[in-house]
Simulated assay, not measured.
Amino acid sequence: MEPTQHTSAHDPYLWNRAKARVGFRIHLRTYLIVNAGLWLIWAFSSLAIHSFTRFSFIFPWPIFPMIGWGIGLASHYFHAYQQRSERSMIEEEYQRLVKQ
């Protein structure tokens, strides 16, 4: 049996939570590697441009993909690690509806 499959002994809810958390960690690792590469490209290109011109400042453009992707990463984090699970929120809402 492959590791991505689960047996009936696993709780499906916990299995999905575990998959979400592993997915977040993979997303975080990719974010860090790609953004480090973008900053290295910026640094080396800034050095090359600086050696040919008298300008001493090149705008740090990697900040834009870092912020945009960071917003998505934060959303992924809250989905994977939120304190209150969707299951508990649904249960609370169901109990409210039952009381009505």
Score class of each variant (00 low, 15 high):
41 I>G: 06
74 A>E: 13
90 I>W: 07
9 A>Y: 04
6 H>A: 12
75 S>T: 12
61 W>D: 01
72 G>D: 04
94 Y>H: 08
36 A>N: 05
95 Q>D: 13
97 L>Q: 14
60 P>A: 02
76 H>N: 15
27 H>E: 05
66 M>Y: 10
84 R>M: 04
3 P>A: 04
86 E>I: 09
95 Q>Y: 11
32 L>D: 08
8 S>T: 12
14 L>I: 03
5 Q>E: 15
69 W>C: 08
47 L>K: 12
82 Q>S: 15
63 I>W: 04
21 R>H: 00
31 Y>F: 15
38 L>K: 03
68 G>I: 05
44 F>L: 10
45 S>N: 08
81 Y>V: 03
48 A>Y: 11
58 I>H: 11
52 F>Q: 13
44 F>A: 06
85 S>C: 01
57 F>H: 14
54 R>G: 05
8 S>D: 15
16 N>I: 02
56 S>N: 12
69 W>A: 13
4 T>S: 15
87 R>V: 07
52 F>S: 07
23 G>A: 11
58 I>R: 05
57 F>K: 11
42 W>I: 03
26 I>E: 13
67 I>A: 15
28 L>E: 10
72 G>F: 07
23 G>H: 04
42 W>A: 02
53 T>W: 09
8 S>A: 14
42 W>R: 01
87 R>F: 07
49 I>T: 11
79 H>D: 12
21 R>E: 10
80 A>N: 01
92 E>M: 07
89 M>P: 00
76 H>P: 00
99 K>N: 01
11 D>Q: 01
39 W>C: 02
85 S>N: 01
55 F>H: 10
86 E>G: 11
45 S>D: 05
59 F>R: 12
25 R>Q: 10
5 Q>C: 13
17 R>S: 09
33 I>Y: 07
72 G>S: 09
93 E>G: 03
40 L>G: 06
10 H>C: 03
38 L>C: 10
55 F>Q: 08
38 L>Q: 06
4 T>A: 13
51 S>K: 04
46 S>I: 01
85 S>V: 01
54 R>N: 06
24 F>M: 07
65 P>C: 04
39 W>T: 02
95 Q>H: 12
2 E>G: 06
44 F>Q: 03
36 A>L: 14
83 Q>P: 00
11 D>N: 12
37 G>R: 01
2 E>L: 05
16 N>Q: 13
67 I>N: 03
75 S>Q: 13
48 A>L: 06
60 P>M: 00
37 G>K: 02
4 T>R: 13
8 S>C: 05
1 M>W: 06
97 L>D: 07
48 A>E: 04
23 G>N: 12
77 Y>H: 13
32 L>I: 14
14 L>Q: 12
77 Y>W: 14
36 A>E: 02
77 Y>D: 05
51 S>D: 06
1 M>C: 10
45 S>F: 05
15 W>T: 11
98 V>G: 01
62 P>Y: 07
